[in-house]
Structures are given as structure tokens and as C-alpha cells.
Nucleic acid binder design. Structure first.
Lengths: 154, 154
DNA sequence: CAGGTCAGTTCTAAATTAGAACTTACGGTA
DNA sequence: TACCGTAAGTTCTAATTTAGAACTGACCTG
């Protein structure tokens, strides 16, 4: 399976990965949420090769997560800004951050804390069902393919 | 930056990606949540090359998400089962699925629906703060590096 | 005009992946 | 005993991707 095939898969996870299923893509995206917008800044912070950075920015742009925007003429200079679809990715990134914070050990201890803009209190992320408020876990959910009446999924 | 360097980063997103920052790794993990456990099954379902599959299973095992377990002797045959850390990754995968379902268009329409095991009702995932119940968005949260008093992060 | 900045592109060598065949260790069948 | 099949890999070569570094325009400043 190649990247192009991934995009045409039925499973949304596969389709999602066709855009963000690469470490550099996700690190670029993370930096976007930290307010980074320009080529040189990404390159310096990430230590990514310029070639790959250019490629990943194109991927994110064509995937609809970033918008390339001129911030000056003469010479034309562009910056990359999050779109609504890009901002909508935030919970996924936070989920990953939260998981890694707990399950991928760090020798430096806690490193990044998410706090509320309002209260300044630390945030403990939890994925719930919007209507019932119940936490989403392997145990209490089941994945159904369209048209599939019942099948094991946990 | 190489995969080994990624693991030593301060940022939990980078550390997380040192384990799951690869499309195949995440597709293998997805199939684990669908109940797949054996080498041949993964290989057939994913169309991944056997070489890469063996490598990704090792990555997931050494990352603590999967446990390699003998299910028979003579000849010894192993299967790969989710650990607690692996199961804890579920919300992240669901977040990704939910994001992609909305933001990466599919020609086949909705494909996978998550339903409650109890009620059978469809689940609408939402990331909230565990204590306040408020949704986690770019706007109402700020990332603080350890020791960093205040900085832009959205 | 020399030097610097920004956003890339181009180059070669190294690493990774695809695709297919091969290996090991069995168990069953003729 | 020889042959077939299964499971879980390993090994092989060729193609693709990445790393690392230098180069390219198009401008700006002194």
C-alpha cells in the first residue's frame, strides 16, 4: 500500500494517515499550534532537512490543514497558518501528548503542561461521548463498518 | 533528527511519535483494536511487506503497546496482544478517526461508526477537561513548558 | 557593490521500503 | 518416506525516501 492508495481507503484512520501519518508532518503541525508560521523557524526548531520540510508543508497545505499566505511582496514571502480543519486536529494532538506523557517515559519528567486560558489550572484531557458524557474506551465501544450489523471490535 | 533522538526529546508529542509516528505502526495498532493478533492476519489485511510488519511489531512491542505471547508450542507461535498502555492509546486513535471522518473526504461516505456497547447508539467523541468538563480547544488552552511562566501557544 | 535574509531547489550518499523468494519448524496425508 | 500446507518470520535486489550540505533567486541594508 502506498500513500496514494491510503487516501482512498474506506477506513477514516487510513485516510487520516494519508495526510498526517508521518512524524515530520505531525511535528510541523505541533509547532503550528505553538505559533510557528515561517519556513526558517520550522527548519531551525525541528532540525528537519529543508527538502523534507518543503514537502511536508505542501502535504499539510494540500491536506487542508495549513493555508499558505503571502505576508509581504517584493520579494513574495509566505507563511503557513492553520485552517479550521487544522485547528480541528488539536484534540488528536492533545490526546497523543497525553498518552505519551503517561506511557512513553521521559528522563526529564513532565515537560509540557496544558493549562486553561481562563483559570490557569492544568488540564486533564479525557475523551467522552458528547451526548452521554461517558468516557470512550475500548471496552464500552464497538466499531461498525457501514452495513455491518455486528462484529467484534475490541 | 533521527528516531532515536526523537525518543529523548522533552516534548511528549515527539516522544510519542518515536513509537507511533509512522503510518504502518498506526495501521497495525488500529487492527489490534479490531481484534487482529497474528502475523499472517496483519500481513494479509494491510498488504504491508513482511519485513516492515516484523519491524513495526517489534517497535510496538518495545514501545510497550503490544505484548508478544506464545499461543502454542511445537512449533512455537506467537501472537501480539494489546497491553494496558496499548489500550490507553484508543482515545488518540478515535480522535484521529473522528477528525479524518470530518476533514479528509471519502468518496464512499461514512465508513466506520463507533457505537456504544451498552446502548448501540452512535458515539460522538469529544475531548474535554476531566475536572471542568470544558471542551479542549486551541482557544481555551495554553501549553506551558516546565518552568515557563507564560508564552503564546495558540 | 558586498553581505545578509527568506524560501525554497538541487545534489550525492545513506537509509528505508517494496516485492518476491526463501527458511525453519512443525503437523497431516499418501 | 516424500510431499503439502501453515505460521512467523528472514533474506535478497531494486526502487524510493531521507540526510546533509551546497546552491539559487529575489530582494533588502550599508
Amino acid at each position: 500500500m502506498k500513500w496514494t492508495e491510503l487516501r482512498q481507503q474506506t477506513c477514516p484512520v487510513a485516510r487520516g494517515l494519508s495526510v498526517v501519518g508521518d512524524r515530520w508532518t505531525l511535528l510541523v503541525l505541533r509547532d503550528c499550534f505553538f505559533g510557528i508560521r515561517r519556513f526558517e523557524q520550522f527548519q531551525e526548531r525541528l532540525g528537519i532537512t529543508r527538502h523534507v520540510l518543503a514537502d511536508r508543508l505542501r502535504t499539510l497545505e494540500s491536506g487542508g490543514l495549513l493555508r499558505r499566505e503571502a505576508y509581504q511582496d517584493r520579494p513574495v514571502r509566505h507563511e503557513y497558518r492553520l485552517t479550521d480543519a487544522g485547528r480541528a486536529f488539536f484534540p488528536t494532538l492533545v490526546s497523543l501528548m497525553d498518552w505519551a506523557d503517561t506511557h512513553v517515559p521521559s528522563e526529564t519528567g513532565h515537560s509540557v503542561t496544558l493549562v486553561s486560558t481562563d483559570t490557569g489550572d492544568p488540564i486533564r484531557p479525557l475523551l467522552v461521548d458528547q451526548t452521554s458524557g461517558a468516557p470512550v474506551t475500548v471496552r464500552n465501544t464497538r466499531a461498525l463498518a457501514q452495513g455491518e450489523p455486528s462484529d467484534k471490535a475490541g
